[in-house]
Amino acid sequence: MIMTRIHFLVATTTLVFALSLAYASDPSPLQDFCVAIDDPKAGVFVNGKFCKDPKLATANDFFYSGLNILGNTSNPVGSYVTLVNVAQLAGFNTLGISLARIDFAPYGLNPPHTHPCATEILIVMEGTLYLDFVTSNTDNKLFTKVLYPRDVFVFPEGLIDFQFNGGKSNAVVFAGLSSQNPGVITIANAVFGSKPPISVVVLTRAFQVDKKVIDYLQAQFWWDNN
């Protein structure tokens, strides 16, 4: 009986530890910071980027200016994402965070998408926003909410979500993400705009529609609002 309890305790502890690793988006840094650089001769390789010698780092390595600028929403979806990740702010490297500004024209949409590497938290600065996310295939449950200025909402990592401005004025939101490079997969772009295209046979079977529908969708120009 004692050995059974010990085995159960060990198994439970191992599972909790494994789950904690599985839910971590980026590994914890092993140093104060690792300013990303592109020249491998000038640093060491850590977490997907080369690191500048810490003695050569400056305040500008941790600084970004430009999120006060209105994004160009004159596009087919009526939204624009200004992303600030490790590619724009080198000091983000190994810190496990990034952020974005999202601008919406009236009736603008940030199309259904996922961030495969990050949880996202969003705060509305201007306007109102209708948003949702869908759980995984266990039940495909839809969570929806209308947000007003200073409201906050969180999207769990990897789940499909979208945001829609149903108002007659512009909307602006800021989002924080739990990865230095969260990635984004816009569903329609990935499925119908892949290069080379996904087999029509596969898509007609997957969506259970006529081939003409798939041909039409694959012929469209799928706009990237990033």
Rank of each mutant, 00 (worst) to 15 (best):
T12F: 13
T14P: 03
Y23C: 06
P27S: 06
P29M: 09
C34Y: 08
V35M: 06
D39S: 15
A42S: 15
A42E: 15
V44Q: 14
V46L: 08
F50D: 06
C51V: 05
D53A: 12
K55F: 11
L56N: 14
D61F: 09
F63Q: 07
F63M: 10
I69E: 14
G71N: 10
T73G: 02
N75L: 05
P76I: 04
V77I: 12
Y80E: 06
T82P: 00
N85K: 09
N85T: 05
V86N: 04
F92N: 08
T94W: 02
T94V: 09
L95I: 00
L95C: 00
L95P: 00
I97P: 01
S98P: 08
S98A: 06
R101C: 11
I102S: 00
I102M: 00
D103K: 02
L109E: 01
P111L: 01
L122F: 02
L122T: 13
I123K: 05
G127Q: 01
G127W: 06
L129H: 05
Y130L: 05
L131D: 02
F133D: 11
T135S: 13
N137W: 03
T144E: 15
K145N: 07
P149G: 07
D151W: 04
P156Q: 02
D161E: 08
K168N: 14
N170M: 08
A171S: 15
G176N: 05
S179V: 06
N181K: 11
N181G: 08
N181P: 01
N189F: 03
F192E: 04
G193M: 10
S199K: 10
V201L: 12
L203G: 03
R205T: 11
F207K: 02
Q208E: 10
K211G: 04
V213H: 10
V213A: 10
Y216P: 01
L217H: 05
L217V: 03
Q218S: 10
Q220N: 11
F221C: 07
W223I: 04
